[in-house]
Design a protein around this nucleic acid. Structure first.
Lengths: 115, 115
DNA sequence: AATAATACCTAAGAATCTTATGTATATTTG
DNA sequence: CAAATATACATAAGATTCTTAGGTATTATT
């Protein structure tokens, strides 16, 4: 990533992708995040894969490896526990974004905040 | 801090405090941040003081120790270089907040974003 | 044929924070 | 008035999270 502000938010992002798409593989996630962030967040493989492994170990996501388009891909989906965690993570993120906005951009009116 | 989303944003926050107040000491910063964040961000001394020392070593801030109210306090203020850095840091933070909002909360209309 | 892209993985090291500890003085509370 | 809390600084060991660098293997492009 280009900014270290993203530190700590990668798990939340991955969890959100899986909550939206319900099925994705790692490489796909990194490409989608790169695109969605307009090249601002480049999730390296050294960060991505260990996070996926940890989320799976914690029962937040599950995987099954399949052979698709001449490729071996490890597809991940969110578990029930993960869905609950996702709600909490989103709340935590909203709270963080709001707090940061209040602390750093308090003079801007709400509708123009971040713009 | 209660959420590890704050990881990476402490320097930005400290720099912003000094850009606003023009003079503060460490202990004062930690109390103000606690108050401003509504107890959501508790900047520990183990994080705070090393950051201040690094910012000073990098010429972003300067300090002078004074005896005030029966206390030895190390007052910090922002340098010219620091003021320039602060503009960049704020831009970076706005960009991060906007990107996160786009990625995680894209369905919400702008005026209700984060609410 | 060589390079880039797809797709996974891990290990060493850097950066950032927590926890724990230390020093010293002042104020508040039981 | 003794004990606890608050003020004010500091550092060191450890945890967490990421980068950098390397590895394997296949497919697509130039």
């Amino acid at each position: 990533m280009k900014s270290n502000l993203y530190k700590g938010s990668l798990s939340t992002i991955i969890l959100h992708l899986l909550a939206e798409k319900r099925e994705m593989y790692g490489y796909e996630m990194s490409k989608l995040v790169k695109e969605k962030s307009d090249d601002k967040l480049l999730m390296t493989e050294g960060a991505l894969y260990p996070i996926l492994h940890k989320l799976e170990a914690d029962g937040i996501i599950t995987s099954d490896t399949r052979y698709v388009d001449n490729r071996n891909r490890k597809y991940y989906k969110i578990t029930e526990k993960g869905a609950k965690q996702h709600v909490l993570s989103l709340k935590e993120m909203k709270d963080y974004l709001q707090t940061m906005q209040n602390m750093l951009l308090p003079t801007l009116p709400t509708q123009n905040a971040l713009v």
